Computed example of a mutant assay.
Amino acid sequence: MLRLSVNDEISRLRAVVLGTAKSPGPIPKPEEAYDPKSLEHILAGTYPKEEDMIREMEAFSKVLKKYDVAVFRPEVLEDCNQIFSRDIAFVIEDKLIISNILPDREKEVDAILHVLDKIEEDHILHPPEKVHVEGGDVMPWNDYIFVGTYTGADYADHITARTNVHAVEYLREQFPKKKVLSFELRKSKNAKENALHLDCCFQPLGKGKAIIHKNGFLVEKEYQWLVDFFGKENVFEITADEMYHMFSNVFSITPEVVVSEKSFTRLNSWLRVQGFTVEEIPYAEISKQEGLLRCSTLPLIRE
Rank of each mutant, 00 (worst) to 15 (best):
Q82C: 01
I88K: 07
T149H: 01
P140W: 11
E120F: 01
E58G: 01
N164T: 03
L113A: 12
E169L: 02
Y150K: 00
H123Q: 13
T151V: 05
I119Y: 12
V131G: 11
L102V: 14
K37Y: 11
I145S: 08
D52V: 00
M139R: 04
L96A: 11
K49P: 02
K66T: 13
V138M: 07
E78R: 08
V69Y: 01
F84Q: 04
I88G: 08
S61G: 06
D104S: 13
A161C: 05
H114N: 15
H158K: 08
V131W: 12
K118H: 11
D110M: 00
S99Y: 06
H132K: 15
V115I: 14
T151W: 07
A59D: 09
A111G: 05
T151H: 11
I98L: 15
I42C: 10
E58C: 00
W141M: 11
E58T: 05
A89W: 11
F146G: 04
L77M: 05
F72C: 02
E56K: 00
D154I: 00
T160Q: 09
H41K: 01
K66Q: 13
K37Q: 14
K62R: 12
A44M: 00
I88C: 02
K130V: 05
E75C: 01
F146D: 07
A89D: 09
P140G: 11
R105T: 10
K66F: 05
H132R: 13
I88R: 07
E78Y: 00
I42W: 12
A167Y: 07
P48R: 03
E106C: 02
F90Y: 15
C80M: 08
V165W: 03
Y67R: 04
D143Y: 12
W141A: 09
V138Y: 08
D52F: 08
D157K: 08
P140T: 07
F60C: 02
